[in-house]
Amino acid sequence: MVGELASNYSTILMMFGFAVVATAPALLISRMIAPRKRSNPVKFLPMECGQVPSGAGRTHFMMQYYAYILMFVVFDVMAIFLYAWGSSILSLPRTATLPIIAFLAIMFAAMAYALDQSRRRNIW
């Protein structure tokens, strides 16, 4: 049973592997036939529209919308929880929907509060 399940999922991994193996030769062929001139070190500088790059490439970046990332961490998991209910709803009694409605209400209220807070840019 477990082996059967694993074999079903293994085809996805095999597809991933096949795609990588089938497209890697394109890079190898390119490496073989394309010209490789290493005479000019300026060529290997990062792209900055023709200017000589200044500062580090991996800089600090102002996370202006950081609140959304925090919300994603919580609500993505909750969205997947709803699938556990949605896929088994046909075999559940009708009264089982009420707790889920309550769950949805809590989720929606929490999301509304978080969105309201995320608009206050001065606290982020």
Binding site: I29, S30, I33, P35, K37, K43, F44, G57
Partner: peptide, 18 residues
């Protein structure tokens, strides 16, 4: 595309970048 040179930036993390 195949015949063009692949240029990798000098300070890039090569294995992940490729």
């Amino acid at each position: 595309l195949v015949t063009k040179e692949i240029i990798i930036p000098a300070k890039a993390d090569k294995p992940i970048f490729i």
